[in-house]
Amino acid sequence: MIQTIELTKVFRTDEVETTALNKVSLWIKKGEFAAIMGPSGCGKSTLLTLLGLLDNPTSGQLIFDGKEVSKYSEKQRTLLRKSNIGFVFQSFNLIDELNVFENIELPLLYQKVPVANRKKMTEEVMERMSISHRRKHFPQQLSGGQQQRVAICRAVVGNPLLILADEPTGNLDSANGEDVMNLLKQLNSEGTSIVMVTHSPKDASYAGRIIKLFDGHLVAETE
């Protein structure tokens, strides 16, 4: 599904050079649920942005669905990303000016899905995630758990091959967090690959594999 070979990311400012990710090689298989763990600043989020094709690595290879994409232009990455990858964020990142339905529908707009299909797909996913009754509400009117539920709907509405989740329960209380994890687990069991960054060993226990990072290096993998 997705493979990295000696993936490296260096951030430069005028005076300082920071190696956020140092020669990381790993392979995420189709249908897998992987958790990336490690202390703050170890490179988890950087790895996630590279896996999500949001940025290009400084060196190393990134193979996505059989294609070497590390040198792709932003345009090419966008094309690949929009139909294959869904995102879930710690801070939900819903657009405040759009209501629940409109937020979930957003990826479909960029995929140019015709109106009728768009409506149907959005309705379906809302139904599945039990959020239909909130369709007209705006993010500020929802609880954190509900917001993350909407964010997950948005991540899966286009039926992506891969979901990248960045500390999806980080801003939630334990009951809501568990709820979200169960949702992800359910999606995974239906065949979606998931890569999740987390601090929480409890959340990580939902994953089939745990990848540990430290100071930009891959230090351990446990099945």
């Binding site: 932003e74 990303r81 960029y110 948005r154």
Partner: peptide
Amino acid sequence: SREIGLRKAFGSRRGQ
């Protein structure tokens, strides 16, 4: 910036 990042993550091109 959040909204922009989000739209890009979900596949918006710069022109859009």
